[in-house]
Each structure stands twice: as structure tokens, then as C-alpha cells.
Nucleic acid binder design. Sequence first.
DNA 1: TTTAGGG
DNA 2: CCCTAAA
Length: 272
Amino acid sequence: MTRASKRKATVPKPTTKANAKAGTKDKKPTETSKKAEKVVAGSLAATQSKAPVDPFAFEEGDVVVGSISLTVKWVMKGHTTSEWTFSVPADATVDSLRKMVEETTDGVLKAHAIILKHKSKEMDRTSALLSDYGIGDGSEVVLLLNHEAGPVPVPPTAVNHGFPGEPVAKKAKKDKKEGQSDKKRERFTKAEAEDLIKGVELYGLGQWAQIKLAYFRSTQRTGVDLKDKWRNLVTASQRPPGFKFRVEYLNDPAFLGHVAKVNTDALSKHRE
DNA sequence: TTTAGGG
DNA sequence: CCCTAAA
């Protein structure tokens, strides 16, 4: 295949090092002889015009004076969809936390669309300190999405735990001991097909693993399944007008038209 | 392990 | 859906 798009769309990989890929702006933590010192002391005033503090500016082993450990939970339809544990500087702001969430989900959850609440109170002052909202160690923050800010895809589950970038979920072994080939043939529902379309739209062609994580995390669908389904959808969209499909939702010209459109757009981006 | 394609 | 060469 051609080179993948330049924009990295990879979900935080379970890296062993804490800050393997996070903040790209902060160079490197000079020696750690005086970690407690390099921390945020004065950094807020120093870079006030820009991002308050690079959320990933410190490392796992650092002793951050006045740090706050909190948990961010994304609640949707009554249940927690995803949850992350963060350790932030004492002078972290609402906005810096939102950016951390965006980083952690590798951009899947856009900072501008994130609404944070603490004890039912919406934290709308983005430049306010988390402490201004009474947030301290062990606090729990609820994350909501501002739908008016545009469609936001489902983020990967349990992306992080502890410091950003720290490994979290185990790989879920493929105990394919005996003939575990109990894979029954289950047709994609229209909803699944639509999620797949959104995935290709958002991540691009070939990003099956990414789409799997974003939209089929808790499903049996594998990246290969998604790839196969996309191939079939595109083929279907190229059938002559009036073609009759067994699967009902494929008989909707608008539906297949969308598939064709998304495919065309994705193809152009795929080769640039 | 994931992707791309033919089976 | 499966199989598997390539990456």
C-alpha cells in the first residue's frame, strides 16, 4: 500500500516508558537530580501565553510537588464508557486537563468538545485551576461531550491508567487452543456499517485496527472483518442502478452513495 | 501483529 | 469468513 497518511492516528500504545510519545513540545527532561524543582514551579507564568503546562512534561518517577491524582470518567447513557487516571501538576488548569484527555485518546476526543464536571458542577472556566473547583487527590471528574461542537467518535476504552502513556490493558490473549473457530457468520447490521463508514471517514483506509478500537472495541469484529466489509460495501456501491441486494439497507441509494463518497475521499487522502 | 488480496 | 504473503 502507499504510505499511510502523515497524521498519526495511533492509539496510545502500551509503551513501557511513560512519556514515549506524548508531548512533543517539551524537549527532554534534563537530568533528574532535582526533579521536584523542574516541575511546574513558575512554568505557568513563564509560558502563560501558550499552553499552561505540558501535561506530559514530567515523568513517572518524578516527584511532583503538589501534584494531583484524579480520575476522569466518560459517562455515556448512564454507564462509564472509559476512564483514565491522571497525575497532574498542582497548577494544572481545566484546559490543560482537557488537552491531556485529547492526547490520551490520541485526538479521538477533541479538547474543544470536552466538558468536564466535578461533583455535578460544570468546569466552564477553562483557565481556572483544577483546585479552584475543589479538585484534589482522589477527585473524580466526569467527562461529557459537547455534541454541538461536532460529531465525536467513540474513544478507545481503558486507554490509560496511571501516567499517560503507561501500559494499561493486557492484550487479551488469543487462547486459540483447540478449534476455537466458533465464528458464526453474522451479517453486519446497518448500524455497524455506519460505524465502519465513520471510521474510514475519520481514520482513513487501511486503519482497520484503529477503527476496531474506536467503534468495535467490544465486538467480535476483527480488523480483517472490517476490511472485508468495507470491500463489500464499496463493491456494492459500484453495482448498477436498480441492483437488488439481499441485505435491505444496501437497497438505499443514499446509503451506498455515502459509501462511494467516503471511499472516494478516503482514496484521495490515502495516496497524497 | 496488522494489512491487503485472493480463496 | 478464511488463508497467508508481506511488511
